[in-house]
Write a protein that binds this DNA or RNA. Structure first.
Lengths: 152, 152
DNA sequence: CTCCAATTGTTGCGATTGCAACAACATAGG
DNA sequence: CCTATGTTGTTGCAATCGCAACAATTGGAG
């Protein structure tokens, strides 16, 4: 091991995993209770709505929503058949595909946000003060920096 | 909303979700690379190994591993057919079932820990110092306190 | 005791996921 | 050109998940 792993660190790790799990569960439950689709759907419509021209390449969308590629492929199938988005060819790269949001997709995003936002407020933000947020953000930033993989 | 939800809070929320997602993915990948079963399996054998007599009621195990009940039912099926644990009747409650770990189950727990621990060390603990851990723990404790549900 | 509501755990079934293989195209090297 | 290698996205298939319904039993109210 890189360093000796302290018992305390393991406990914080466990709490971290569990806390996130509970929170996500609570948020998903709120969405479902409001008759809305799951969180990934929101991620997709949000990323697309934000993107210039309301579209992104499949791979770029994938990088943003943290979803395996085969997984995203099929999620897009489902969302497309719901009319929330559509695939379009990429002029410069015949392999690629743009995923373009539709008006219905934008409406879904706007409809989901209040519920999702309220959920974040209630389960997450309301429990923390300014300093907590700052500290948490600082710590998360450190965690983003992945240790270098085995040297190439 | 309980309070006005700040943009900053939403961003921290997003980073929180993503960080945890990435970390879990990395850990699962490490386990798989070592030819080991997924994390839930570890959770189960660990909780059972810790419990007095190496067994827990289905419902108690469920509460510890944060898994839907139908889901746990089937995970237990699979682990039982791998000989890692076994079901046993509960004397005082004919509905219930004890889940009892086997020697093979204990061996699996011991075999998984080094890999899992190393993974925690590398992806999580190595990125944080003492103060980070303390602060994170303090913040997570606040998040554990769920807001009261709608008044009964 | 008797009945009704709640608890405990399982199961059928359709939806979603993960893995591995694949097709189609792009890009670089000769 | 022509080939080898990498990229992009999809798909078949098996494993797993989520929901709703269920059986079995318990516990409490009358």
């Amino acid at each position: 091991m890189p360093k000796k792993l302290s018992r305390a660190a393991v406990e914080v790790w466990a709490r971290f995993i569990r806390a996130e799990h509970r929170l996500l569960e609570a948020v998903e439950a709120d969405l479902k209770a409001a008759g809305l689709p799951p969180l990934v759907w929101y991620d997709v419509v949000l990323e697309l709505a934000r993107a210039p021209d309301g579209r992104l390449r499949h791979r770029d969308l994938q990088a943003r929503v943290l979803l395996a590629k085969y997984n995203l492929s099929r999620l897009i199938d489902r969302m497309a058949s719901d009319g929330l988005l559509a695939r379009a060819p990429v002029a410069e790269d015949a392999r690629g595909a743009y995923i373009a949001i539709s008006e219905a997709g934008r409406r879904l995003q706007k409809r989901m946000w209040p519920v999702y936002g309220r959920s974040i407020a209630r389960h997450f933000a309301a429990q923390l003060d300014e300093r907590d947020l700052t500290e948490l953000d600082r710590i998360l930033a450190k965690l983003r920096a992945e240790p270098r993989r085995a040297p190439v």
